[in-house]
Amino acid sequence: MISYQDLVKHFGSSLSDKDLQSFLANLCSDLTDYNILEHDYIISQQIGIEFGFTNNSAVYEVDEGVVFENGNPVFTHFVLHPKSSTLIIDLPFDVNFTDNRIAIIKKAGNPSLTKEGYIKFLEKDFLVDNYKVGDIIITFDYDTEKKTINHIQVRDNNLAADHLKL
Rank of each mutant, 00 (worst) to 15 (best):
V67Y: 05
L87K: 08
H151N: 15
H151E: 11
L7G: 02
L113W: 14
S29C: 06
K124I: 10
D99F: 01
H163D: 08
Y41M: 09
L7C: 10
L113S: 13
D125R: 08
V62I: 14
D63H: 11
V8P: 02
K147Y: 01
L37A: 11
E145V: 12
F11Q: 04
V79T: 13
T148D: 00
T54M: 05
V67C: 11
V59N: 14
I88Y: 00
L91I: 03
K18R: 14
D162P: 13
I152R: 00
D125N: 12
N72Q: 15
E145K: 15
G65P: 00
K147L: 02
V74F: 05
S112L: 07
T114S: 14
G52S: 04
K120G: 03
S57I: 06
Q5R: 12
E116C: 08
I149G: 00
D129P: 00
N158F: 07
K106M: 07
Q21I: 08
S3P: 10
V154S: 02
V66S: 09
E116V: 03
K147C: 01
N150Q: 13
S44L: 04
P111R: 02
L87F: 06
A161D: 14
G12S: 10
S44H: 05
I88P: 01
S14E: 06
L20E: 06
N35R: 13
V95L: 02
I47Y: 11
K18P: 09
E116D: 14
Y131T: 04
L20K: 02
I42A: 02
T54K: 11
H10S: 10
D19K: 15
T114N: 09
D125Y: 08
D143F: 06
L31R: 07
K18F: 14
D33T: 14
V154Q: 02
D135E: 12
S14V: 02
T86H: 10
Y41W: 13
Y118I: 03
H77P: 03
I137R: 03
F121G: 05
L113G: 07
A58K: 14
N110L: 13
I149L: 03
D33H: 15
L164Y: 11
I89P: 00
I138G: 01
P92A: 02
I2G: 04
L113R: 15
S85C: 11
V79N: 08
K115N: 14
R101H: 01
I105K: 14
F78E: 02
G71E: 10
F75D: 03
A161L: 07
S85G: 04
S3L: 07
F68Q: 11
Y60T: 10
F51N: 03
